[in-house]
Amino acid sequence: MPHFTMDYSANLDGKVDFGALCRVVHAEILGTGLFETGAVRVRAIRCEAYAIADLLDENAFIDMSFRIGEGRSQEDKRRTGEAIFTAVTKHLRKLFETPHFALTLEIREIDPALSWKKNAIHPRLRKTNG
């Protein structure tokens, strides 16, 4: 872990380079020093069907969800959220020039007793970086 997901309204196609935005978020996550490189996953998921606020066609959203394993302090989580939200807001500044865009971020801790994982990337990166 961590897994970072951006659900976004399909009307942002052509307005946002989601590949570049994923890399911005990835860099911020690694920049915290709290997560191993081999664990980081950042993805954007296009939402074709949605209904936003007053239903104007121009309304758009990006809803960001950051799922992390337990063990980080409240301050570390807050600092991480602030860094990511600031970087994404800066990257998307043009979208805030209109009154039709909403951006959200939530960080959630995963219960380790209810989480299973198998990662072949970790050993390779640990060997390279170790």
Score class of each variant (00 low, 15 high):
86 T>F: 10
79 R>F: 00
107 I>T: 03
104 T>E: 02
98 T>A: 11
125 L>E: 12
129 N>C: 12
19 G>L: 08
80 T>V: 02
65 S>T: 13
47 C>I: 13
49 A>G: 13
84 I>P: 09
64 M>H: 04
110 I>L: 10
83 A>W: 07
50 Y>Q: 14
69 G>P: 06
104 T>H: 02
129 N>R: 14
66 F>W: 03
105 L>D: 03
123 P>H: 06
19 G>K: 02
51 A>T: 11
101 F>M: 05
9 S>Y: 03
50 Y>W: 10
47 C>N: 15
84 I>E: 03
54 D>M: 15
72 R>Q: 09
27 A>V: 15
58 E>P: 02
69 G>K: 07
122 H>G: 10
64 M>V: 05
18 F>W: 01
28 E>H: 06
16 V>I: 10
128 T>E: 14
13 D>S: 05
21 L>S: 02
58 E>V: 02
15 K>R: 09
92 L>E: 07
71 G>D: 09
122 H>Y: 10
31 G>M: 06
79 R>C: 01
14 G>P: 00
70 E>D: 08
125 L>H: 09
96 F>P: 04
16 V>G: 05
48 E>L: 08
125 L>A: 06
87 A>R: 00
85 F>C: 02
46 R>Y: 12
91 H>D: 09
103 L>Y: 03
83 A>Y: 01
41 R>Q: 14
128 T>D: 12
44 A>Q: 06
3 H>F: 00
77 K>M: 11
50 Y>H: 12
63 D>G: 11
116 W>C: 01
102 A>E: 12
23 R>F: 13
128 T>L: 15
81 G>S: 02
119 N>Q: 04
87 A>N: 00
11 N>T: 09
64 M>E: 07
80 T>Y: 06
54 D>T: 13
121 I>S: 11
74 Q>M: 08
14 G>Y: 13
108 R>G: 13
12 L>M: 05
68 I>C: 10
117 K>E: 14
128 T>S: 14
